[in-house]
Amino acid sequence: MAEQRWINAVRGFDPEMAGKQAECDGGGPVVGTRLASRQEFSGVLSGEYMDHGDPPWRWYLMVDLQRKPAGYEQDSVWCESNSIFLV
């Protein structure tokens, strides 16, 4: 599982999202650098989520990755809910 620091986050499970095929647009940091870049993932949503802060910033766990940036070695990633597109 892609572990991250999730301070003050509330974990949960959304059965309606579980098993859904999805793509995630947007981007994120280039690990270990001060740069950010566009990055795209596709995979299956596990249904697990994290709500971070107030107002809640929701993240879903995407697993079984079918598309991920070169060099991304993990098989899961947390995706911001508004950047997820069900396909």
Partner: peptide
């Protein structure tokens, strides 16, 4: 600001 839409795992440099 740059808002991440994916959160990669923490990594040791």
């Amino acid at each position: 600001l740059v808002l991440p839409s994916t959160a990669p795992p923490a990594a040791d440099l």
